[in-house]
């Protein structure tokens, strides 16, 4: 009797997740974006594709780190085909760098919107288009209503959207499925080696619908995400050259 009750409850939980806009991954589709332990934070342990993900950054360094992280995710999303649009108002992305994160820069279509107010219009149009695999939108503000519109657009078209909010002073509520904050942290090389190591970030999942927010240190190495579990060694007298 108790077993059936538990079953009913778990079934209801699953239903609730579905009603809230989360769709279980298609059987056979490879939705493992290589996030490793980070993926455990998502409902069902799978990165939610076909949803809007929000990244906030307060300085250009954070924006660069977020860009790297997003590009790493996009790499896996583009494997199954489809176009990638990078929509921005003031773009600073350097296309050749995308290659270092596994995305062919020539596959990305950069839309440099001359007016700030058109950014979200273009983004919504792109998110509605089914031939598009993923859309990255660099913008400044995103109101709740605007985020709802974007989220509704992707629920129909299954496009994965990344909204990278730059220079965020005030964080408001949005309808996005997740909210991330990526910050660069000290890279590490083998003890005693000079120079700069692989890109390493403090990945903070501030908000995730139906999941557990968390905090990880992630490194981009060998074209994949590596979660760093060992505490970072403090190496005071590190010298270069």
């Amino acid at each position: 009797m108790t077993a059936t009750k538990e079953e009913i409850i778990s079934q209801l939980r699953q239903d609730m997740i579905r009603w809230e806009g989360f769709r279980p991954p298609q059987p056979g589709a490879d939705n493992d974006l290589g996030l490793g332990p980070v993926a455990a934070a998502f409902p069902d342990g799978v990165f939610p594709t076909g949803a809007i993900h929000e990244f906030i950054s307060s300085c250009p360094e954070d924006t660069a780190a977020s860009g790297g992280f997003i590009t790493g995710l996009v790499q896996k999303l583009l494997v199954s085909g489809g176009a990638c649009l990078w929509i921005s108002y003031t773009r600073r992305i350097y296309p050749p760098a995308l290659k270092l994160f596994g995305v062919d820069p020539d596959r990305v279509i950069f839309v440099d919107v001359p007016l700030q107010k058109d950014v979200l219009w273009v983004t919504e149009e792109a998110l509605k288009c089914e031939g598009v695999a993923t859309v990255i939108c660099e913008t400044k503000d995103l109101s709740f209503t605007e985020s709802q519109r974007l989220q509704l657009a992707v629920e129909k078209s299954h496009v994965t959207g990344f909204v990278l909010r730059k220079d965020v002073k005030k964080v408001n509520t949005t309808a996005c499925v997740t909210r991330w904050q990526i910050r660069p942290v000290r890279s590490q090389l083998r003890t005693g080696m000079p120079g700069v190591g692989h890109p390493r970030w403090q990945v903070e999942l501030l908000k995730v619908r139906n999941g557990r927010p968390g905090n990880w240190t992630v490194e981009w190495k060998k074209q994949d995400f590596q979660t760093i579990t060992t505490p970072q060694l403090t190496e005071e007298a590190r010298r270069y050259a």
Partner: peptide, 15 residues
Amino acid sequence: SAGGGADSEEVAELL
């Protein structure tokens, strides 16, 4: 061709 690339019909229309 699976999925359609950046030059598929829908993307061209979007652009």
